[in-house]
Amino acid sequence: MNIINVFEEDRMDNTPDEEVVEPIIQTKDVNVYYGDTHALMGIDLDISPKRVTALIGPSGCGKSTFLRCINRMNDTIPTCRMTGTITLDGENIYDKKIDVVQLRARVGMVFQKPNPFPKSIYDNVAYGPRIHGLAANSTDLDEIVFNSLQRSGLWNEVKDRLDTPGTALSGGQQQRLCIARTIAINPEVILMDEPCSALDPIATAIVEELITELKERFTIIIVTHSMQQAARVSEQTAFFHLGKILEFGDTSEIFTNPKVEKTKDYITGRFG
């Protein structure tokens, strides 16, 4: 855990400078294979800290695969192979010395379908701090749970029923619970894999608002199918197509003035 603390202090000192920011995540020539399928081809991408980066593209273009490379969730798929380097704060996360468990505490993830544990709301949020030893005693833990639920905007809705199962909440609340659960371990980066695709429009609006608030403290990478969502929440956008990045840049730039023809077709809904 000591490594995390060092970086946390680093981040405090880093006054965000809009123009020249060191990328927090850099990927170089990332290739991913599922068995014989070549899913990602030579991905180079720099992710800036405390921004929201959106990954867009048609289904099966590899954006979710790329996302899962960043916290090594692909390790759980036996047939999956990866080459190239991904660095987090300048450190190769595929290095042998890296403990994946610690990596995933630094790079949290929110999934497509809300997947709270079938435990109480409190235990859902407290689970991460418990396994990572982030709380010295139960008062500490209560505070972490309170802060996380507060920040995810769920506190007022659930404060009277912290011991009810997380699975009993509504879909939007469940997804915010998953976000609260993720920020409880105080990660540097939060990966979101189409977090709103299972939610209704109202719940989606709430989650999007939450994302905008969260970027003050966290770097967020979000995979989305919705152009509007990418336009609303992200500062930068990468357009994936057939396992490659065709275009990457400021969101406003990509949506108003795409340089590649394919991007333009996709954004305007001509294919996808």
Partner: peptide
């Protein structure tokens, strides 16, 4: 010195 987060694993 009791600072759990400085340990690699839980006590």
């Amino acid at each position: 010195n009791g600072k759990v987060s400085a340990l690699h694993s839980l006590p």
